[in-house]
Simulated scan of single mutants.
Amino acid sequence: MTCGLHPQAFFGNWKLVSSENFEEYMRAIGKIIILTYLQIGNIVTPVLSIYQDGEKLVMKLKTSVFSSEKSFVLGEEFDEHFAGQKYRSVINLDDGKLVQTQKWDGKTTIQTRKIQDGKMILVRMS
Rank of each mutant, 00 (worst) to 15 (best):
T2S: 15
L5F: 07
P7A: 10
A9I: 08
F10I: 04
G12R: 02
G12L: 02
N13I: 05
V17W: 01
S18R: 07
S19H: 12
E20Y: 12
E24D: 15
E24I: 12
R27Y: 09
G30T: 09
I32P: 12
I32G: 14
I33L: 12
I33S: 15
I33A: 15
T36N: 14
Y37W: 07
L38D: 03
Q39W: 01
I40L: 03
G41Y: 01
N42G: 14
N42E: 03
I43C: 02
I43A: 01
I43W: 01
T45Q: 09
L48R: 06
L48F: 05
I50N: 05
Y51M: 01
Y51N: 05
Q52R: 15
D53C: 05
E55I: 10
K56G: 04
K56R: 14
V58Y: 05
V58P: 11
S64T: 14
V65C: 04
F66N: 13
F66G: 03
S67R: 05
K70Q: 12
S71T: 06
S71Q: 10
F72Y: 11
L74I: 09
E77N: 13
F78A: 11
E80N: 14
H81S: 14
Q85T: 15
Q85Y: 06
K86D: 14
K86N: 12
Y87G: 13
S89L: 08
V90E: 11
V90W: 09
I91W: 05
N92R: 14
N92S: 11
D94K: 10
D94V: 13
G96M: 08
L98C: 06
L98H: 04
L98S: 05
L98A: 06
V99C: 07
T101S: 02
K103H: 11
W104G: 13
W104L: 14
G106D: 09
T109M: 08
Q111D: 12
K114C: 13
I115K: 05
I115R: 06
I115N: 06
Q116A: 09
Q116G: 02
M120Q: 04
L122H: 03
R124T: 04
R124Y: 09
